[in-house]
Write a protein that binds this DNA or RNA. Structure first.
Lengths: 126, 126
DNA sequence: ACTTGCCTTAGAGTTTACTCTATAGTTTAT
DNA sequence: ATAAACTATAGAGTAAACTCTAAGGCAAGT
């Protein structure tokens, strides 16, 4: 498929897709060139970009993602290094989940506070 | 307390603290000026900055934070608007938690994949 | 053939969130 | 009283992640 179609299927803009490619987040499994030099994307590209989006959404930088997504035989990182990275990332995610719970509590408190204010009650604020 | 002390207590730099103030994330409850024009921070400032950090860490922009943290009587947003925002944010956070679970699954799968590779097994990749 | 619309690149511009520098005034320690 | 260490401001600089523009090539419809 061509870039416009991929953009529609992933919800990204064509600029972003080309930018990600330039940043090394896509490789030959995801993009090939036609004779006319047009990019031809595989279905794997959709999955890949969705993966990128998912990780991005939880505070992963593109640089970090690039390192981890790079094919095992094309870079210098050893499997053990990558495995270590994955483990660290997993406990980071667990920590982030706890944080989200804390924020939910805070939001709930804010909700109560605002509701009380609407009814003229006085409470403490931060 | 003065800015350096607040920086140490919050883990932010003095630049960031001043920047946040300029962006409207702190108000008279958090900062006052001395006769010498030095900023004098209250203990509430610590709590406030920690709150900002927490929300920031889960993808809240400063602009968004500003709107929500602004004092109820100093801005044009009605309580109902803010309450609606809080509700939306809460379901957003719930969605984010689900995403984190998905990512944990993905990471777990990646871990298995890498481990298998180390042992010479072949699997599929994205 | 011609227009419209999609594709290409290089490179410039934008936004967010800092981060620092220059310059100057204030406070503290010796 | 003088230096070191802190404070202030305005404004410049940086990094990440886009976002767009210009100039040109290709493709499909009339």
């Amino acid at each position: 498929m061509k870039i416009q179609e991929l953009a529609e299927k992933t919800g990204l803009t064509i600029y972003t897709i080309r930018f990600y490619e330039k940043e090394g987040l896509l490789d030959s499994r995801h993009v090939q060139r036609e004779k006319n030099n047009y990019r031809n994307y595989s279905d794997e590209a959709i999955e890949r970009l969705n993966l990128v989006k998912k990780f991005q959404g939880v505070g992963c930088s593109l640089a970090e993602l690039k390192e981890i997504l790079q094919d095992y035989d094309t870079n210098s990182r050893t499997h053990l290094q990558v495995i270590e990275w994955i483990r660290q990332k997993m406990s980071e995610i667990e920590r982030k989940k706890d944080e989200l719970d804390q924020i939910l509590e805070t939001l709930n408190w804010m909700l109560e506070y605002r509701t009380a204010l609407m009814n003229g009650t006085q409470k403490t604020k931060i």
